[in-house]
Design a protein around this nucleic acid. Structure first.
Length: 212
DNA sequence: ATGACGATTTACT
DNA sequence: GTAAATCGTCATA
């Protein structure tokens, strides 16, 4: 086991969201497009959502609706939601089975299918694909989904068994704590203390593809 | 049925 | 730094 390129199995997704968030850093998120082409990037920035007690989480207070149903599925499930009337964001469900806990993927370092990413990203931009710099490709949760072609149609897929979306082992060891930046989550100003300030965002220190 | 609100991004002052 | 874009979702009625 543990070969490079091996797909993450179910148990890798189990555990507290903060731990899984850190564990995901440096590994490769892959989406196999309908024509078989791969678009993929190394996870460089994530946010942990703790669950029913977390005012910033969609599952706060045990909220369970058609939109966030995937959060209640087993660890390894992909939770994709639509927001601001124009953007998608994707999460990796973790925790224990039935526990609505997840990790938001905020940024990737693009490594495969950059041309396809540019084609997608240029759709809503007036720039030409060639003018989109590598750093603009996946440096934010909405950009990640746009570049990878992830939308609600992928919501609920199982990263541990789907041939369409999965995590590939891209390093033998976790990113050392000393190389992980930690800070408050972004865009949750109305959640209130302590959740607004909680240090639940993690990124690979110094990586240029982290959001700004 | 209605209204307020986003786990964002981009363009512009 | 500020504002616009844009619409599904959720709480209230």
């Amino acid at each position: 086991m543990h070969e490079a390129g091996a797909r993450w199995a179910r148990r890798s997704f189990s555990g507290a969201s903060e731990a899984v968030a850190r564990r995901l850093l440096g590994h490769r998120f892959v989406h196999v497009l309908e024509d078989g082409a791969r678009v993929a990037g190394l996870i460089v920035e994530v946010e942990a959502y703790v669950g029913v007690e977390d005012r910033a989480a969609h599952s706060f207070g045990g909220r369970r609706t058609a939109r966030n149903e995937s959060m209640y599925a087993h660890p390894g499930t992909l939770y994709v939601y639509f927001t601001y009337g124009m953007h998608h964001c994707m999460n990796v469900v973790c925790g224990a089975a039935g526990e609505p806990v997840a990790v938001l993927v905020r940024a990737l370092e693009p490594v495969e299918g950059l041309d396809r990413m540019r084609a997608c990203r240029s759709g809503s931009l007036r720039r030409r694909p060639s003018e989109i710099r590598d750093r603009e490709l996946c440096s934010g949760p909405g950009k990640v989904c746009q570049a990878l072609g992830v939308d609600r149609s992928l919501d609920g897929l199982d990263l541990a068994s789907s041939g369409q979306v999965f995590i590939e082992r891209a390093r033998r060891r976790p990113v050392p704590s000393g190389q992980i930046g930690v800070g408050p989550r972004i865009g949750i100003g109305n959640a209130g203390s302590p959740w607004t300030e909680a240090p639940l965002r993690f990124w690979i220190e110094g990586n240029p593809h982290v959001s700004r």
